[in-house]
Every structure is written in structure tokens, then in C-alpha cells.
């Protein structure tokens, strides 16, 4: 025989290969489970109302997350206020208004490049532009500076998801509007935007959840690690959940490590709530369009 297919040997390799792919996938998910379990085991004993409502302290058992939680909420709100209109507006412009094709292409290329820029580089931009040059306006290393930096960081995500949401709106709807003599903005604001809004919101929330977990950019603009108060205005110095966690992790004392784990639990709960909202919105969105 010229051919010797050796099927048994080949099937053995097939099974080994299939097992390898399952093991790899299982391993990745196992690491996720171990990570979650580790954090829960380390941190849950420390979770208490006292932990959530206390300000930072030099004694681990007295230290709490209040200042960081407050700072993160400030950041979340300000970032949303800045990034949402700009991101959605830019998405609208590119998808509905832009006529010059080279400009759209330039922005498209630009956005995909921005998405690949490390967040710490955004931090350097924020440090120089928002914290230094615009100090009279922003108050320097303030919660506003942090929010501006994070807004730039998540802008590409919001723009891209806005455009995707707008693309799902059927073109017939636009034509119907134009056929009635409406201007483009009248059509977009009255018909297109309301339909696309749930999709845009989903993308925005996911982008903001990235901002909430962001650490490096905030450290670079000089967010302080020891802030024993909750910011009361946008130009106040601040700390945030991930920065507080980083601060606690880098202390040598075991007690602070426990605090870090507890802080991680709070951060993950916040993230989960945001993601759940996004998923809920997405499901409703899919229902209305079909």
C-alpha cells in the first residue's frame, strides 16, 4: 500500500488536542474563580458598615473606604457628564452629519489608534494639560482633572458604541423623516436618537465601568493616596477606590492587605451593578428593535 493512514494514532492526537483546548479554557476560568474566591476569603471578614463609612486611617482596623468611594462616585458622575455628550455628539456627527469623507476616515483611524494607547499615557496628558496648564480652572490635582482625563480615556469606546447603535436604526426611518421635509437634526433628534439611546447607554455604562477600575492614569495625574475627606466640590483633591486599594496593597502590614481585599469587593460590586444595568438595557434594546 502506498498509503498508510494510521487512523488510530491520528485519533489519539485529535483527542489530546481537543483536551488541550478544553484545559486551556478551563484554566483561564479557573484562575478567574480562584481570584474571586481569594479576594472574597481575604476581604469579607473586614466588610462592615464601619468600613464603608470610615475615612482612611494609619491604623488598618480603623481605616475605611468612605473617601475613596465618595471620590469614585464624584469621578463617575463628572466623567459621565463630560464624556457622554462629547462622545455621543462625535458619534452622531460621524454617523449622521459628516459629509467630508477624509475627515471621518481621519477620525476613525485616530480613534482606533487612541484605543491602543496605554492609559498611563493619558495620565501624562492629564498631568501636563489639566493639572498644570489648566490649574486655575481645575484646581490642579483635583477630582475634575481626574474626570477630564478619564473622559478622554473612555471617549473612543463611547464614540464607537454610539456609532454601532446608530447603525442599527433602519435607514427607512430617516428617509421617512426627510420625506416630510424635516432637517437632518430634526430627524435625528426626533426619531433616530430615541431608538438608538438604549444601545448608546449600554456602551456608555461599559465605558464608565472601565473608568471606575482605572488606576494608572489617576496615579499619574497625582491623585493623592491619603485623603481623609470626601471631596465637596470639583476642584477638591481626591482619592478613588482603585487608588485606595493600590495604596493598601503596597503597605507591608497584613491588616492593610485585608482592607485592600475588602476594597476590591466593594469595587467589584460597583462594577457588577454597572454591568448588570448595561445588560438589562441591552436586552430591552433588543426587544424594541425586533
Amino acid at each position: 500500500m502506498l498509503f498508510n493512514p494510521q487512523l488510530e494514532r491520528r485519533y489519539l492526537w485529535d483527542n489530546l488536542f481537543a483536551s488541550a483546548t478544553w484545559i486551556a479554557t478551563g484554566l483561564a476560568i479557573l484562575v478567574l474563580l480562584v481570584l474571586l474566591a481569594d479576594v472574597l476569603l481575604d476581604g469579607s471578614p473586614r466588610l462592615s458598615w464601619q468600613f464603608i463609612t470610615s475615612l482612611p486611617s494609619r491604623k488598618p482596623e480603623l481605616a475605611g473606604i468612605a473617601a475613596a468611594l465618595g471620590g469614585s462616585i464624584w469621578l463617575l458622575v463628572l466623567t459621565a457628564l463630560i464624556a457622554f455628550p462629547i462622545g455621543v455628539g462625535a458619534g452622531l456627527y460621524l454617523e449622521e452629519f459628516s459629509i467630508e469623507s477624509w475627515w471621518s476616515r481621519l477620525i476613525e483611524i485616530n480613534i482606533s489608534n487612541l484605543a491602543g494607547v496605554p492609559s498611563i499615557i493619558y495620565g501624562l496628558l492629564g498631568l501636563q494639560v489639566f493639572a498644570r496648564w489648566m490649574q486655575p480652572l481645575t484646581g490642579g490635582r483635583s477630582v475634575l482633572t481626574g474626570a477630564l482625563t478619564l473622559a478622554l480615556l473612555v471617549l473612543p469606546v463611547i464614540i464607537v458604541s454610539t456609532r454601532e447603535a446608530l447603525r442599527t436604526v433602519p435607514d427607512g426611518l430617516r428617509q421617512a423623516g426627510f420625506a416630510l421635509g424635516a432637517t437632518r437634526w430634526q430627524v435625528v433628534s426626533a426619531h433616530v436618537l430615541p431608538l438608538a439611546l438604549p444601545g448608546i447607554m449600554t456602551g456608555t455604562i461599559l465605558a464608565l465601568s472601565r473608568a471606575i477600575g482605572e488606576t494608572a492614569a489617576l496615579i499619574t495625574i497625582g491623585a493623592l493616596t491619603f485623603v481623609p475627606f470626601i471631596p465637596n466640590n470639583p476642584t477638591s483633591p481626591f482619592t478613588a477606590l482603585p487608588i485606595q486599594i493600590y495604596n493598601w496593597v503596597s503597605r507591608p502590614q497584613q491588616g492593610f492587605h485585608v482592607n485592600a481585599a475588602a476594597g476590591i469587593i466593594i469595587l467589584m460590586v460597583v462594577l457588577m451593578m454597572m454591568n448588570a444595568t448595561a445588560i438589562l438595557l441591552r436586552n430591552r434594546f433588543q426587544k424594541t428593535l425586533t
Binding site: L2, F3, N4, P5
Partner: peptide, 9 residues
Amino acid sequence: GARINGYRG
């Protein structure tokens, strides 16, 4: 195809 089927020529 020949290789996977163990062609010896």
C-alpha cells in the same frame, strides 16, 4: 491530503 493519509512515496 497525501501527507495526512500517510503517503510513503
